[in-house]
Write a protein that binds this DNA or RNA. Sequence first.
DNA 1: TTAAGTACCTTGCGATACAAGGTATTCATA
DNA 2: TATGAATACCTTGTATCGCAAGGTACTTAA
Lengths: 107, 107
Amino acid sequence: MNTDNTKSQMRKGMLEYCIMLLLRQQPCYANDIIQKLHEADMIVMEGTLYPLLSRLKRDGLLGYEWRESTQGPPRKYYVLTDDGHEALAQLDASWEEILRTVNILKS
Amino acid sequence: MNTDNTKSQMRKGMLEYCIMLLLRQQPCYANDIIQKLHEADMIVMEGTLYPLLSRLKRDGLLGYEWRESTQGPPRKYYVLTDDGHEALAQLDASWEEILRTVNILKS
DNA sequence: TTAAGTACCTTGCGATACAAGGTATTCATA
DNA sequence: TATGAATACCTTGTATCGCAAGGTACTTAA
């Protein structure tokens, strides 16, 4: 059975949205994001996260700043840019649309 | 801006779920599915749908039967198998989990 | 017999999640 | 001072999947 595969497929496209939702609330560095998404029942791997953050940065949706850590090397804290907030608003709309679609199909 | 791309990414993983939701209600052939999903605000292309249906069939989640058409060649009507219903129930759970995740991240 | 419509399917491409592996910095300890 | 562990960032290779484009086959009507 490929249910696990499908399940991960369902989560796939949601990742970018979820990460931006998280960053809307507070700046985070990679391990923050992994942990907080995990607490919200969404698993994300390092090898997935770093390229995704780089892409969002390259597209101008995220910025970052280095912050010293009390333990270990400095951390890259990512923040939503203005463009990022704008894009996220559109993704909110897309999410509502998906909600609507699923509700229609379930009714 | 890559919002359109992200939007389609968000829909990506949902397609399989939406198609199975649709088939839970009634047997459909390809053009039925495309049209009904369209009515529910979800766009799906032929080149996407056929391989997906074949895969679900191969995995034993769907079956099909040929039915004559009053206009044109016969149609392949797909139906959920018992395994399909079972898998769909698990996807329902996954969907609830994603709902929960997004709600947590939005709060 | 030919053209249009309908239906099913395949191929090639781009995007992306993931596993595995790699580099660099910090700090504690031998 | 040297070394090992912990932390943090990043890259590479693979598999999967949606999509655009193109192809095959059957039916009906002109």
